[in-house]
Amino acid sequence: MQRVNMIMAESPGLITICLLGYLLSAECTVFLDHENANKILNRPKRYNSGKLEEFVQGNLERECMEEKCSFEEAREVFENTERTTEFWKQYVDGDQCESNPCLNGGSCKDDINSYECWCPFGFEGKNCELDVTCNIKNGRCEQFCKNSADNKVVCSCTEGYRLAENQKSCEPAVPFPCGRVSVSQTSKLTRAETVFPDVDYVNSTEAETILDNITQSTQSFNDFTRVVGGEDAKPGQFPWQVVLNGKVDAFCGGSIVNEKWIVTAAHCVETGVKITVVAGEHNIEETEHTEQKRNVIRIIPHHNYNAAINKYNHDIALLELDEPLVLNSYVTPICIADKEYTNIFLKFGSGYVSGWGRVFHKGRSALVLQYLRVPLVDRATCLRSTKFTIYNNMFCAGFHEGGRDSCQGDSGGPHVTEVEGTSFLTGIISWGEECAMKGKYGIYTKVSRYVNWIKEKTKLT
């Protein structure tokens, strides 16, 4: 034993070699072989497995989906700052455009905790909710729209109204504003409101030439003092309507412009014939205590009207009353817009006519005020429907199939267009061939041609 100890002390290297040989010859039971080890760690190889990531292109799944990435790591994937920024906006807080917040056709661009709407022409605001041009839906104005110097929408209202708090709607500024039905039992019968379409306001006024200088022999019209197929109006439903009495009662109609003036057809009036105007009328054979009678003290036909040349060209006249009318729910003026808007309103496509005229061709006159909704007829169809001249200051309205029309005794009465609950004068009943005849239409004086003249002559002093 002493000898062994001496050998170990003198030859430590020998001992180490012996131990190493023993270990190498022993069977290893701690580690699995290569094949079995792979069965336990069965993990798919990654895209760049075996390579240094710093030297390969980034992978979106590896960089940002398996674990949260930084902007720089995302930049490695896209290799483009702009594309990385677009991805980053949604990656950080989701897609803010998912709810489609942009209105009126706006395009949404996502941002971090926010979004941006790219608005089409005519709109602005956070969600493109603000109209900035009158060309689109009248700028959301209830009545009139004008573009300011910086191309912003400025709404306005006709006389007797003021802008509401929203700067879009119009509200009454006087007790009985024009064009409004205020009798409670008839307010439910107000005709369907007309909503502004998209309009090209630059070209809204037709490029028409008034044929002022045409000389033409007097034409022989049949029954051209021209509501057939209409309905009984309720008291106060058309408070701007008046009836004219002269040699015979209810020979023509008219509309209240203001307390002192009536507008009617020029062919209705004769110099030297006494005319009485009755406002607030409903049943011409009954006294309903809503009527107001006034005498006409002055007749002003349009300066281009000449019955000797043509009885229905420039067929418009103004009547001055001896005493002002007292405005109330049964006696209310009709609204008159400017030339541009009167023309736009007419193009809405349908209007209402009213009167006490004959209820059928050569038949009896109506006792109760009649009204009828009539569609506008395109000019080409209008011209083809008659052998008589249709001037540019006239328009056609009615039904091709016949059966409904204005008729004798309705002449001078109103053709009105309702705009968001307020009625505007767009025409004056003038003439036609018979009444409600198939293929024939009622012919009306186009008020847009005469609004400046009306307003100039009827100013209240």
Rank of each mutant, 00 (worst) to 15 (best):
M6L: 15
I7D: 04
M8Q: 12
M8S: 14
S11I: 14
S11C: 12
G13V: 14
L14N: 02
I15Q: 04
I15M: 10
I17Q: 02
I17A: 05
L23R: 02
S25E: 05
A26P: 02
V30G: 15
V30P: 14
N36G: 11
N36K: 12
I40Q: 15
N42H: 12
P44A: 13
R46L: 10
G50R: 10
G50W: 07
G50S: 06
K51A: 14
K51P: 14
L52M: 15
L52A: 15
E53M: 08
E54Q: 10
F55G: 08
N59G: 07
R62G: 09
M65R: 09
E67V: 06
K68Q: 15
V77A: 11
E79M: 13
T81I: 08
E82Q: 15
R83S: 15
T84S: 08
E86V: 15
E86N: 10
D93H: 09
D95A: 09
C97H: 00
D111V: 10
S114H: 08
S114G: 15
Y115E: 01
P120Y: 03
F123S: 03
K126A: 11
K126I: 09
C128T: 01
T133Y: 07
N135L: 10
N135T: 14
I136D: 09
K137A: 07
E142Q: 11
F144T: 01
C145N: 01
C145D: 00
K146D: 12
N147Y: 08
V153N: 06
V154M: 13
V154E: 07
E159F: 06
Y161Q: 02
A164K: 09
E165S: 12
E165Q: 12
N166W: 01
C170Q: 00
P175M: 12
P177G: 03
C178N: 01
G179V: 00
S182C: 03
S182N: 10
S182W: 09
T186I: 12
S187L: 12
R191T: 10
V195K: 08
D198V: 11
S204R: 13
S204K: 15
E208K: 10
T209R: 08
L211N: 09
N213K: 05
N213E: 08
T218P: 14
Q219V: 08
F221S: 14
F221D: 13
D223T: 13
R226Y: 13
V227C: 08
E231F: 07
A233D: 05
K234H: 13
G236H: 10
Q237I: 08
W240L: 00
Q241N: 08
V243T: 10
K247Q: 13
V248W: 08
V248K: 12
F251K: 08
G254A: 04
I256T: 01
I256K: 00
E259C: 04
T264P: 01
T264D: 01
C268G: 01
E270I: 09
E270A: 12
T271V: 07
G272F: 06
G272P: 12
I275S: 03
I275G: 03
E281W: 11
E281R: 10
H282S: 10
N283D: 14
N283S: 08
I284A: 08
E286D: 10
H289D: 08
T290V: 05
N295G: 08
V296C: 03
I297Y: 05
P301V: 10
H302I: 02
H303Q: 11
N310M: 05
N313G: 06
I316N: 00
L319Y: 02
E320W: 01
E320L: 04
D322H: 04
D322P: 00
D322W: 02
E323V: 14
P324G: 04
L325C: 01
V326Y: 10
V331Q: 00
P333M: 02
K339L: 05
E340A: 13
Y341M: 13
I344T: 09
I344Y: 12
L346F: 05
S350H: 12
G355P: 05
W356V: 07
G357A: 12
G357Q: 15
H361V: 13
R364W: 05
A366N: 15
L367F: 12
V368E: 10
Q370M: 04
Q370G: 08
Y371S: 10
L383M: 07
R384C: 03
T386F: 09
K387D: 12
F388M: 10
T389K: 07
I390Q: 09
Y391D: 14
Y391T: 12
F399M: 07
C407M: 06
D410H: 15
T417G: 01
E418I: 11
E420Q: 08
T426H: 01
I429T: 12
I429D: 07
K440C: 10
Y441L: 11
G442E: 04
G442F: 05
Y444F: 14
R449V: 11
Y450V: 01
V451F: 03
N452D: 15
N452C: 05
W453S: 00
K455R: 12
E456F: 07
E456T: 11
K457A: 10
K459G: 09
K459L: 09
K459M: 14
L460P: 11
L460I: 07
T461Q: 13
